[in-house]
Amino acid sequence: MKKYKNFNFIMGVILTGLVVLIAIIGCFYTPYDPDAMDAVAKNSGISMDHWMGCDNFGRDIFSRIMEGIRNTFLISLFTVAIGTIVGVLIGAVTGYFGGWLDEILMRINDALFAFPSVLLALVVISLLGTGMFRVTLALGIAFIPSFARIVRSEIKKQVTQDYVESAKLMGAGNFRIIFVHILPNILPVLLSSIMIGFNNAVLAEAGLSYLGIGVQPPDASLGRMLSEAQSFLFSMPWYALFPGTVIVIMVLGFALMAEGITQAQMK
């Protein structure tokens, strides 16, 4: 896994690192206040003052992108975190113990799995209401089934290995066997599905915000910006172009990292 060059993984890390760096800088410094409107600069194009131009309210697009990346990134991060943690717990328990608990949880999982995760998120949002926190929670819940499924099938594979029997003979408890003995072995698979999940979260957040039920104005998110830019696609194409490009870079970065991890596993 370490001895050879993994081009995909390195490229992925560079792209993602770039995006994360911008988001971190955005926490402390933006060229303009992302929400400040400047009537003079309204609809202005690319210039020395505004690198990526201004939107229809005269807000600096570059500053808004910096804030948008941060919001999108945080939402995706916590979405995946919720999905992974709960998914791993459910998947591990069902995969390891099997039996009726496995049956019940997996049937519920199947039922949830039948809905596209965005649709599932829509249902949760309609129950909880909008806002960054609730969107994160909604997406997180929508992501649980896919993680639970992957973890369950990986754990099932490992359980048949003799090292698990051997751990039982040593006197290790079930909890220890699952989380200390087995989990490190499914980490590579889990890691690449986390990367892919992260991608889906970025796109799902963009989608929800685009529909107007994600991040609420005046907060910026990449999806929100795209949706606002929609009406000005022809008059000021850069408004849509820049947030769109950033989404592509983010998604590409994670996709490449996932690909790299998968390749490393194959070797």
């Binding site: 003799d162 090292y163 029997e165 751990a167 040593m170 006197g171 290790a172 490190p184 072995n185 980490l187």
Partner: peptide, 24 residues
């Protein structure tokens, strides 16, 4: 204690020799 037939599946691939031996 038991020693299994397949030495390739009876040692945890994610751990070091030292870790495995210390586990009991």
């Amino acid at each position: 204690q038991m020693v299994f037939q397949d030495p390739y599946s009876s040692l945890n691939p994610a751990k070091t020799v030292s870790w495995i031996l210390q586990e009991p």
